[in-house]
Simulated assay, not measured.
Amino acid sequence: MRTPPKRALVTGLAAAALALGSTVAATPAHAAACNGYVGLTFDDGPSSGNTPALLNALRQSGLRATMFNQGNNAAANPSQVRAQVSAGMWVGNHSYTHPHLVQQSQAQVESEISRTQQAIANGGGGTPRLFRPPYGETNATVRAAAAKYGLTQIIWDVDSQDWNGASVDAIVAANSRLGNGQIILMHEWPANTRAAIPRIAQTLAGKGLCAGMISPQTGRAVAPG
Rank of each mutant, 00 (worst) to 15 (best):
L20C: 15
P224W: 11
G92A: 12
L13G: 07
H94P: 04
A74Q: 08
C210G: 02
Y96Q: 08
T23M: 14
N56Y: 02
A25G: 12
A14T: 11
Q161S: 04
W156T: 03
A26T: 12
S111L: 14
S105P: 01
Q106M: 11
T116Q: 03
P52E: 06
A205N: 15
L101P: 05
W189K: 11
S86M: 12
G219A: 06
A31E: 15
G88R: 09
D43Q: 01
L55E: 06
W163T: 00
D169G: 12
F68G: 00
I113S: 04
A15G: 15
T97E: 08
A33V: 11
L204I: 02
H98F: 02
P216D: 00
G126T: 08
T116M: 09
G125R: 01
E188H: 08
P134M: 05
C210T: 07
M67I: 06
G179T: 14
G212D: 03
A166V: 03
G150F: 04
H30A: 15
R177G: 03
A53N: 13
G225Y: 12
A145M: 06
T3M: 13
R199G: 03
R143N: 13
G21C: 07
A29Y: 13
T116C: 08
G206V: 07
H94K: 02
N69G: 11
V85R: 15
L18H: 00
N77K: 10
G212V: 05
A147W: 04
V38Y: 04
T51V: 03
T27C: 04
G136W: 08
S86R: 15
A145V: 02
A14N: 09
P4S: 04
T66W: 10
P4F: 02
N35M: 09
S95R: 01
P224K: 10
A147C: 00
M67T: 00
Q60S: 13
A33N: 02
A119Y: 00
P198T: 09
Q182T: 14
A145Y: 01
G206Y: 03
R143E: 13
A32F: 09
Q217E: 13
T203I: 03
I155V: 14
I171H: 01
A196M: 05
L209S: 07
R143W: 04
N73V: 03
R64Q: 14
C210S: 11
G21R: 08
A147T: 12
A15C: 14
S95V: 03
N192K: 12
Y37G: 03
R59M: 06
A166T: 07
S105A: 00
A8Y: 02
G165H: 01
A33F: 03
L9V: 15
N164H: 02
G165M: 04
P78H: 05
V172Q: 08
A196S: 14
S114K: 10
Y135G: 05
I184R: 08
